[in-house]
Amino acid sequence: MGLFEKQFEDNVLTTNVDWLLNWCRLSSIWPMTFGLACCAIEMMAVGCAHHDIDRFGAGAFRASPRQADLMIVAGTVNFKMAERIKRLYDQMPSPKYAIAMGACATGGGPYYKYGYTVVKGVDRVVPVDVYIAGCPPRPEALLEGLMKLQEKIQASSVIRKPIHTV
């Protein structure tokens, strides 16, 4: 702060409400710890120091859905789990977002044809905002998915109906 100290008079920043609120929201997306299968290990890797999801303000993994904004569905969803996912999603406070991480959560993945208990895509249970390809996706892919979600939040409107979405 030394560079800016005593350089400026008191200032007024003008912006619009949407931008400000969206900026607040997208900079502090709290995900829920919700690892299901293999992708969960990559999600843990993203949380750790090498990839560091904290850079995007999304590092505060919450154990309770009531404190979370984002559900990263990391792994295969089967029928037994689907009902629980629905309930957990319903417990999250709005605005809430969901990322389908990996091929299984997107559309059944390798278990599409013969997986008799596998739900062919978590979007049959909860609405999904961002799909990430890969089996499992690399940590960078998850970070890109998060950035896409941030773009989507930035484009949304708080007081109006959204004009365009990403």
């Binding site: 029928f79 037994k80 689907a82 009902e83 008799y116 208990t117 062919k120 049959r124 249970v125």
Partner: peptide, 27 residues
């Protein structure tokens, strides 16, 4: 491993995959 109300025995060779389970389509 399977839900309590699951119908059929999946690893039998004559098992037929379910159409839907609790309103979620299997196809």
């Amino acid at each position: 491993l399977l839900p309590e109300d699951w119908i059929g025995h999946p690893l039998r060779k004559d098992y037929e995959f379910p159409e839907e389970y609790h309103g979620i389509s299997c196809k």
